[in-house]
């Protein structure tokens, strides 16, 4: 980073450096994507854009939930499995009445809201336990969420094995698939419903983060917990609410993702948390807590999705895709860390 800056206006140098630090990750990703576009111009199409948005939608919902936990200075490795357990529950309860392999073969078709509410209730219960581990027992979020990840995965697999002998759950009710896979046709353009849900949820999160007491307290607890305490903020309650909201987001994402893919196994959601954390970091949500924006999360998720889609589209060796994504995450965290190193 030490360029030769002798003889230049020091104020300008400082501002330029600051600007570079702030936007370095976006510049690099822009360069990568530009390169891809130049190499493969056919990628620029409405069809591809729609696909990207459709895939990004559930990931955005997960990332928004998880971003709150990162903002508190924590993290959540259980996010993917939480999505998975919600997805499996919805899938198992929303099969076509005439489907031959229907799990609950004698059950009347449920109103679509019921399985969703059950999934939400389960996720909120896990989120509540998780938040108590963090706020009351004060376990480090990394370890607490690692434990929760395994517990949720185990619970999900037990259910999956119990109801369907570990074979994929399919044959979804058309009401379910319509919600998750449907689209509004505007002339020749097809706008997927799932994208609209994601936009609505993003707006709700925007209001929550910026316009409610809980949102502002979240920044305070993440930025300087002691300051929040001496200002009379009930930090345990703030932490609990943020976990519950994340749990709600995971449940919704699980419902939609299961419906979108059309079948579900206990592998649903595997690794989603890593994509979501990476997107948040790329979008400028600091792992040190207290710093982050909704717009950053949205941009982070989109950039990451564009990148993944492009790499697949170009038929790049999947192992090389891993290396590229890994490099980007490391770079993003390196830049983030540089911003906050204490100088002495």
């Amino acid at each position: 980073m030490e360029l030769n800056m002798r003889g230049m206006n020091p104020e300008l140098v400082k501002n330029t450096k600051h600007w570079l630090m702030q936007y370095a990750i976006y510049l690099v990703l822009l360069a990568v994507i530009m390169t891809i576009v130049i190499l493969e111009p056919s990628i620029l199409s409405v069809r591809n854009a729609t696909f990207i948005l459709q895939q990004a939608a559930p990931k955005l919902i997960i990332a928004l939930g998880l971003a709150g936990l990162i903002l508190l200075g924590g993290t959540d490795l259980s996010a993917g499995r939480m999505v998975g357990i919600a997805g499996i529950i919805c899938a198992s309860l929303l099969q076509k009445p005439d489907y031959a392999l229907r799990i609950f073969s004698n059950m009347e078709p449920l109103p679509i809201i019921v399985p969703l509410l059950i999934a939400i209730a389960v996720c909120l219960l896990f989120a509540l336990v998780h938040s108590l581990l963090i706020s009351v027992l004060q376990i480090a979020p990394f370890i607490a969420s690692l434990g929760m990840q395994m517990i949720v995965y185990g619970a999900m697999s037990l259910y999956f094995d119990g109801v369907n002998n570990s074979s994929p759950i399919g044959g979804f009710d058309t009401r379910f698939t319509k919600i998750a896979q449907g689209a509004i046709q505007i002339g020749t353009f097809r706008l997927p419903w799932i994208v609209i849900y994601a936009v609505v949820i993003t707006i709700l999160f925007w209001v929550l983060w910026y316009r409610t007491t809980l949102g502002r307290n979240m920044y305070a607890v993440g930025g300087n917990k002691e300051a929040a305490v001496v200002s009379g903020v009930n930090t345990k309650r703030v932490i609990m609410y943020v976990y519950l909201i994340a749990g709600l987001a995971y449940a919704l994402a699980g419902f939609l993702d299961a419906g979108r893919t059309g079948s579900a196994t206990n592998a649903l959601g595997e690794g989603y948390e890593l994509d979501a954390i990476a997107s948040c970091v790329v979008g400028g949500v600091s792992l040190r807590g207290g710093v982050g924006k909704i717009s950053g999360v949205v941009i982070g998720v989109l950039i990451f999705q564009v990148l993944s889609y492009c790499l697949v589209y170009m038929d790049i060796n999947p192992y090389i895709q891993f290396i590229i994504k890994g490099l980007i995450i490391v770079f993003a965290i390196a830049v983030d860390t540089q911003k906050y190193i204490k100088k002495r």
């Binding site: 920044y219 305070a220 930025g223 300087n224 002691e226 300051a227 207290g290």
Partner: peptide, 12 residues
């Protein structure tokens, strides 16, 4: 001083 560094004066 106990302040939240990345927030504005009003919020603090």
């Amino acid at each position: 001083l106990e302040q939240v560094p990345h927030r504005n004066v009003i919020d603090n």
